[in-house]
Write a protein that binds this DNA or RNA. Sequence first.
DNA 1: TCGACTTTGTGCATAGCTTCACAAAGGCAC
DNA 2: GTGCCTTTGTGAAGCTATGCACAAAGTCGA
Lengths: 232, 232
Amino acid sequence: MIRRIPQPRDRGIPDATVARLPLYLRALNGMAERGTATVSSEDLAVAAGVNSAKLRKDLSHLGSYGTRGVGYDVQYLIYQISRELGLTQDWAVAIVGVGNLGRALANYGGFASRGFRIAGLLDADPHVVGDRIAGLVVEHADELESVIKKRGVSIVVLATPATAAQQVCDRVIAAGVTSILNFAPVVLAVPDGVDVRKVDLSIELQILAFHEQRKANGGPIMAEEWPDGVVM
Amino acid sequence: MIRRIPQPRDRGIPDATVARLPLYLRALNGMAERGTATVSSEDLAVAAGVNSAKLRKDLSHLGSYGTRGVGYDVQYLIYQISRELGLTQDWAVAIVGVGNLGRALANYGGFASRGFRIAGLLDADPHVVGDRIAGLVVEHADELESVIKKRGVSIVVLATPATAAQQVCDRVIAAGVTSILNFAPVVLAVPDGVDVRKVDLSIELQILAFHEQRKANGGPIMAEEWPDGVVM
DNA sequence: TCGACTTTGTGCATAGCTTCACAAAGGCAC
DNA sequence: GTGCCTTTGTGAAGCTATGCACAAAGTCGA
């Protein structure tokens, strides 16, 4: 007989679930601030904008942290999700590229409150180096490797122009970084074992435009036929 | 015998495909700039960072625009994808909330080049109203409805603080907008027929932290057992 | 202690997405 | 023409994610 009792989490939480955990965490933090002690999957699902069965299944991947007939303890669930996401530890983040976007990111409050500490701001432009932003002095991009090593940076945010992104990417990987958040509109080539996530602001707008166009064209019937004699 | 020859596109392109079309478009534009005339699904897939079978299936949803043995005509494919996404027309976009992020978005070059025209910048803070950013003068948020109607705004970008987002959202919907890009860290409640896409900068970092933690913990074996006597 | 009530956790069916693998289609050399 | 070579477009299989629906488990009042 196999004893298999506590086993809080299986190795291997589905990606779709991982992507939603931050959402739940945000909703839970809001509830905690308002003094809510426990919450049902139904209420939490509404607050997070998902289906309650999905929410329960997601949480079941972390372990069995609810109480039947009652719901989930808000504080305890915050702790468990935070731990699963690795937010109970402190992550040193460097932002490379201090243009408009880099500044916005440096000033964004949502990082610090979740265990992400901005440990360095770097830029290649001498006019920007030395500026004080969000309490940090911008350093020259030449310092990249030394900043990463001295301050234990493990996540790098790329907010450089597209042309510089791959080069900076190569350097941070050589310096040992294996997690990169890329805002530059290029596909980065990276070796196995390095995680890249990308955010492209214009992609989201294009997806909206697609749906907006569909609405405007009005339903299933399309009067307009596409031109055969189109430039080719 | 059923004649079924031109039928360029089925109604109903999968969401996953729509989300990748902008990626292909970006890769194709790069190739066009470098003077490439035709491209195989294999090369385009590499440039876009996806599997080539997936790319071909995605494109097949738009129609049959390739030539067997040759590949795809770059210019023609750019045209077809742009048209499908609705980028051959001009979209008037208003940005509400001109903080760091709103400024970064207003200055972001990736919009104008894809048919998105910033038609208005609005903010509730009198200190910001009147500033000139990216060639536009910031207007007071009270003007929201009139700006939307007079300038034919069909997409609104929310870059307000979380507390203001729902209220602004309600107003733009009342003014007839049905496509919203939300950067505020809240779940917006909207009626059916309104599309909301959200970008949460801190969610991406949290997902990276999750994977980074996994790597650090080293493989399938977990020495550390989770504490039973945890605060509850 | 018991029974009514609430809510979780999950088996199962379904839907959607990804990937493989290959026949069909077209170009090109000779 | 003809045959070879390349590359598309897609059927089919496998995988992942979603959502329903309900048994199991726990609370709470009497």
